[in-house]
């Protein structure tokens, strides 16, 4: 025979009780601020974005053209060699349809984050950005896209100087 479940005495809590301060908790708001040094590679990348250009770095040893640029090759473990301008067009390497915003609101129209392989950079070299001006159901891996830049006066030297990427119509 199954034993009778024991009743545990206690004080049930509902949301109202929490709001009325019937329980103890301690809150704290962090006031941390950072200013990250962008150094050589990222600084040049951002400065070029402000001019409406994409720039990469090449490694003579493995012959890769790397974007975003870096001053060292993580495969060869040596300094990279040259600055190389690449195109502001590319192909969708992968994408997602994101139905939840960063602050967890449900979205009717999904956001479309995508990794875009840049034309002129080595295969597998891409940047994470956002695709717009296309019905979500129509996005495909391998689709050709181009950067849509913010107006020059509004660029600040940030990855958001590219407003979004849109399909190249054939």
């Amino acid at each position: 025979m199954k034993p009778e479940p024991k009743l545990v005495r206690g004080t049930p809590l509902d949301e109202k009780a929490l709001k009325r301060g019937k329980t103890f908790s301690v809150t704290y708001e962090p006031r941390l601020r950072y200013g990250w040094d962008t150094g050589q590679a990222i600084s040049r990348y951002l400065a070029e974005l402000k001019e409406g250009r994409l720039i990469a770095r090449s490694c003579r040893k493995c012959e890769r053209v790397m974007i975003p640029p870096r001053m060292f090759c993580e495969r060869c473990f040596r300094p990279t060699d040259e600055w190389v301008y690449v195109k502001d067009t590319g192909k969708i390497f992968t994408f997602s349809l994101c139905y939840v915003s960063w602050d967890v609101r449900r979205l009717k129209q999904p956001e479309i984050p995508a990794v875009i392989e840049i034309d002129g950079a080595s295969p597998g070299m891409g940047i994470l950005h956002v695709v717009k001006k296309i019905a979500p159901g129509k996005v495909r891996i391998g689709m050709a896209v181009r950067a849509v830049w913010r107006p020059k006066a509004k660029r600040i030297g940030s990855v958001t100087d590219i407003a979004y990427w849109q399909p190249i119509k054939n």
Binding site: D37, T38, G39, Q40, I42, F72
Partner: peptide, 10 residues
């Protein structure tokens, strides 16, 4: 301060 290098470059 070391603004000329990112932490990775450092």
């Amino acid at each position: 301060s070391t603004p000329h290098l990112s932490f990775k470059e450092l």
